[in-house]
C-alpha cells in the first residue's frame, strides 16, 4: 500500500502497511497526491509503536557509507541518494513524516543542484511568484493571512524554488506553518524575494549583493554537513541572488503592504 506525494516536480512514493496512516496522508496531502509514476523516489515507512518516553533529540543528518542517516527524537531514516530510496522508522504521524519529506527534498535538491527550500511564505500574483522570507516571527504567516483576493498562496512556511532557465520558479508546497493549510499545487516564475522586517510603514529597500547572498544562505533549509552539498547550495544561493530582485520588505501588519507586491 502506498501514496505518491509530488512536490516541486519531485514525487515520493510512501509505502506503509498502516492503512489508516496512508488515509491520513492522502487527506493531508490531497492537492499533492499523484498517480504512482515510474521514476518516483521511494520511501518505506516501518511503523513503530508509540514511544514509552518521548524524545526531543535534535535533528542529525550525516552521510555514512553512501547513505544519508536522518535521526531525530521521533524518527530514524536511511536514505540512499543514488537509488532514490529510503526507509524510515517512526510512530506514524504526519508531522514526523512531513519533516522527513522536507529533509529528503532538501537533500535531493542540493545533490542535483536543482533548487532550494527557503524559510518563507510564497505566493503568485499576476502570474509572478514572490517569496517573503525570514525566521520564525518575521511575519511569513502574517503576509499569507493579509493576502488580498487574486493572490494564490504557495506556502506560509517553506518556499520551494527550482532552477528554471536563467531564473527560478516558485512551486506550491504542502509544508505549512501557523496557517496550518497546504499551499496550492501550482508553479510560477519567481519575480522577487523579500526578507521581512516588521515596521511602522510599508517599504521595499534593495539589499547589497553580499547581504542578499548572506540572507538567502541563512534562511535556506539545509541540514547536511557535506562539502559537495555545501558547494552546491552555495552556488544555488549565489545564482538566486543574481537572478531575481532581492530586497528587504519593511511592513506594517495590514493589507496595504500588498500594494507593493505586483
Amino acid at each position: 500500500m502506498s501514496v505518491c506525494i509530488g512536490v516541486g516536480g519531485m514525487a515520493v512514493r510512501v509505502e506503509c502497511p498502516d492503512a489508516r496512516f496512508l488515509h491520513e496522508l492522502r487527506r493531508h496531502y490531497a492537492g499533492f497526491v499523484e498517480d504512482v509514476t515510474d521514476g518516483a523516489l521511494e520511501l518505506v515507512v516501518e511503523p513503530l509503536p508509540p514511544p514509552a518516553v518521548g524524545s526531543d533529540a535534535e535533528l542529525e543528518v550525516r552521510l555514512e557509507a553512501g547513505l544519508w542517516i536522518l535521526h531525530r527524537g521521533d524518527f530514524r531514516a536511511e536514505w540512499d541518494p543514488g537509488a532514490g530510496k529510503g526507509v524510515v522508522r517512526l510512530h506514524p504521524n504526519r508531522y514526523s513524516l512531513d519533516s522527513v519529506l522536507r529533509i529528503i527534498h532538501s537533500l535531493e535538491l542540493a545533490r542535483t543542484g536543482g533548487g532550494l527550500l527557503l524559510h518563507g511564505a510564497s505566493a503568485v500574483r499576476n502570474g509572478r511568484g514572490f517569496v517573503f522570507s525570514g525566521p520564525s516571527g518575521a511575519g511569513k504567516t502574517t503576509m499569507a493571512r493579509l493576502a488580498p483576493a487574486g493572490v494564490r498562496l504557495l506556502t506560509d512556511e517553506i518556499s520551494y524554488l527550482r532552477v528554471a532557465g536563467d531564473g527560478f520558479e516558485a512551486w506550491g508546497t504542502p509544508f505549512a506553518g501557523e496557517l496550518a493549510q497546504p499551499g496550492e499545487n501550482i508553479v510560477a516564475p519567481l519575480a522577487a524575494l523579500y526578507f521581512l522586517r516588521q515596521a511602522g510603514e510599508n517599504r521595499i529597500d534593495p539589499l547589497s549583493p553580499s547581504e542578499a547572498l548572506r540572507l538567502i544562505l541563512k534562511n535556506t533549509l539545509f541540514f547536511a554537513h557535506d562539502p559537495v552539498l555545501v558547494a552546491n547550495v552555495f552556488a544555488l544561493a549565489d545564482r538566486l541572488a543574481g537572478s531575481v530582485e532581492v530586497g528587504e520588505l519593511s511592513f506594517a501588519p495590514d493589507v496595504r503592504v500588498w500594494s507593493l507586491i505586483r
Binding site: S208, P209, S210, L213, R214, L217, K218, F222, A224, H225, D226, P227, V230, A231, V233, F234, A235, D238
Partner: peptide, 24 residues
C-alpha cells in the same frame, strides 16, 4: 580547500563546508 565563498561588492561571504556555518 572546500570553503565555499563569493566576493561581492568588496565584501565576502564564506561558508564552512564542515558545519555550514556562515561568515561575512
Amino acid at each position: 580547500a572546500n570553503a565555499a565563498f563569493r566576493v561581492l561588492g568588496g565584501e565576502a561571504i564564506v561558508m564552512n563546508p564542515e558545519d555550514s556555518s556562515l561568515f561575512s
